[in-house]
């Protein structure tokens, strides 16, 4: 049995990726199961989805802790989620990047597939939805299913126009994917394990280790304690404030859903990147055009 974990952001279609892969496998007479992880996190938040593939019937209905393959849909996730956490020794990683993929290779990987999925999605689908694009990269590295089966799954799932565009994106990604194997890999200096920084920042995990005796009566909660949950992780772009144009009107501050604009002593505003989810309302509503949304740098 092969176990795959997809990382994306809420709304990017990680669950659809897992389901399309499963559908393609089922079409080929294989056995497959796809399932999401459920939580309170919403659009933009890091989420994961899972897929199990096998030649035999699958009887497991448990969370996948040690996947063989990890697929990362969004480049901004590498810094905030421990994407390779639990990945098996010699496991495979599929990433969306515009950079030199060698930077993402670590010694115990069995293989790495890299594609600039964001670019392909933007050019063909006109939207930053990278889920089908990443499947092209996945099957390029590991021939789990035929490209044609994936295309059929897409045709069944979407209307013709959308399906054809996705198939086009899938095929282009298949062509443009770069594969790195351990043999290609050159050890780079100073690059630590990718897991460590990610671990500490994974949302709320540290808070969840209560025994029943420690629970307060009625499970009451201290006020304002979500401040421990740094939603800056969700952001793929951030507001850049131009002091020269700012008229200190405060609209950015009042319109922020995440209380992430902070009023300063001199009347200007600053951004609290711990919480800013990068929605862009501030930039859109600024009457002076003093705010620009900049893409988060990857890696």
């Amino acid at each position: 049995m092969l176990e795959i974990r997809f990382h994306g952001r809420g709304g990017q279609g990680a669950v659809t990726s897992a389901e399309l892969l499963a559908q393609a496998a089922i079409k080929e007479g294989k056995y497959a199961r796809a399932f999401p992880s459920f939580g309170p996190e919403r659009r933009g938040a890091p989420v994961s989805a899972f897929c199990r593939l096998d030649e035999k019937p699958i009887n497991l209905r448990t969370v996948i802790k040690n996947p063989h393959v990890v697929v990362v849909l969004d480049p901004s996730l590498y810094e905030v989620v421990d994407v390779t956490g639990g990945l098996r020794e010699r496991g495979h990683l599929v990433i969306n990047t515009s950079k030199d993929p060698r930077a993402f290779f670590s010694g115990n990987l069995g293989g790495l597939a890299a594609v600039n999925a964001s670019l392909i999605a933007q050019e063909i689908l006109k939207r930053p939805i990278t889920n089908t694009v990443m499947l092209g990269a996945l099957v390029r590295m590991l021939p789990l299913v035929e490209l044609e089966s994936l295309a059929q799954a897409l045709e069944e799932r979407f209307n013709e126009k959308i399906a054809q565009k996705n198939i086009q994106a899938l095929k282009r990604s298949y062509q443009e994917t770069l594969i790195l194997t351990p043999e290609d890999h050159v050890e780079r200096e100073g690059k630590g394990e990718s897991g460590e920084a990610g671990d500490a920042r994974i949302t709320g995990e540290k808070d969840r280790d209560y025994s029943w005796k420690e629970l307060p009566p009625g499970c009451i909660v201290e006020p304002g304690s979500t401040r421990k949950n740094l939603t800056g992780d969700w952001r793929s772009r951030y507001p850049l404030l131009n002091r020269e144009r700012c008229i200190k009107c405060g609209l950015c501050w009042i319109y922020c859903p995440d209380a992430s604009l902070i009023r300063k002593g001199d009347g200007f505003y600053g951004v609290d990147l711990n919480y800013c989810k990068g929605c862009g309302i501030c930039a859109r509503e600024c009457p002076a055009g003093a705010i620009l949304m900049e893409k988060e740098l990857e890696g």
């Binding site: 933009g44 401040r227 009107c249 995440d258 609290d272 989810k277």
Partner: peptide, 27 residues
């Protein structure tokens, strides 16, 4: 439109909530 500046800096809905990016209800 500068009147919003007279409002309190205190936040009663603490950040770190799991609302969608751009949630109108959170605003």
């Amino acid at each position: 439109m500068f009147a919003v500046k007279t409002l309190t800096d205190r936040e009663y809905l603490a950040p770190g909530h799991r609302g969608c990016s751009g949630c109108g209800q959170a605003v």
